[in-house]
């Protein structure tokens, strides 16, 4: 169970997140949609403390932090419970695919190298890259890199997987393989918060769709409701543009 209260982030006078309240149940798959610059990435980044929120409480399972007073150790604890999939993959350039997946297990969770590598090999088969474990990121296609990025997030075994536009940086030819992998993870009921412009995909996998505008959650509900019969005029306007 994840619970966020009053999450606020400002850049100078610009309030990018305006008191977000959000609860996500175990195994729930939540998609975030909205126009560019409405704070979707900032929401995910604040939940992972890649940006420090100005205000708000974040509760994940049995840990609870107040953003204003969160110590470095508390921030790390939150990060350990929220894995992140980046738009631009952000794989460790000096590590192989296998090492990218095993790195957090070894460095952060203190697993012995052999066990971490064994787990990483399992994940490599899950993401369909069993034969590319020794490849460095530069030698992988965009789609393969993003699959490793997802694999790295899977290894964290986090309460919440944060996924920010996983296919936006990809050439069209690689989009499908990444969406299929994400579908597989969603089907396994990994709790996730995913920002995406792939509306069909959101409709397919999400239990709930959140529409954001101006740093606020304007409307949320099951995809059937959100895509067919949204109540807020802003949601309707947005969907008219993208559907």
């Amino acid at each position: 169970m994840i619970s966020v209260r009053g999450l606020t982030k400002r850049y100078g006078a610009n309030t990018v997140l305006d008191g977000i309240d959000l609860d996500i149940g175990e195994g729930e798959r939540v998609a975030v949609i909205g126009s560019s610059g409405t704070g979707k990435s900032t929401l995910l980044r604040c939940l992972n403390f890649l940006e420090k929120p100005d205000e708000g409480d974040i509760r994940i399972g049995d840990i609870s932090v107040d953003a204003r007073t969160a110590s470095a150790a508390e921030q790390r604890r939150v990060r350990r419970h929220t894995s992140f999939v980046f738009q631009n993959y952000a794989l460790f350039a000096n590590k192989t695919a296998l090492e990218n997946i095993a790195e957090g297990l070894i460095t952060v969770r203190g697993w012995p190298k052999e066990e971490a590598h064994a787990r990483a090999r399992d994940i490599l088969s899950t993401i369909g890259l069993a034969d590319r474990g020794e490849s460095y990121p530069a030698a992988l296609s965009g789609g393969q890199q993003q699959r490793v990025g997802i694999g790295r997030a899977m290894a964290a075994d986090a309460e919440l997987m944060l996924i920010d536009e996983p296919t936006s940086a990809l050439d069209p030819e690689w989009i499908d393989e990444v969406l299929q992998l994400l579908k597989k993870i969603a089907d396994a009921r990994q709790t996730m918060l995913i920002v995406t412009h792939e509306m069909q995909f959101a409709r397919d996998i999400a239990d709930r769709v959140i529409f954001m505008d101006g740093g606020r959650i304007i409307e949320q509900g099951p995809p059937a409701h959100m895509f067919k019969d949204p109540s807020d005029p802003r949601t309707r306007a947005f969907l008219r543009k993208v559907l």
Binding site: L50, R79, A93, G104, R152
Partner: peptide, 10 residues
């Protein structure tokens, strides 16, 4: 590279 490192909890 910094963000990815921090995001895994390093």
């Amino acid at each position: 590279q910094w963000e990815a490192s921090l995001s895994v909890g390093m």
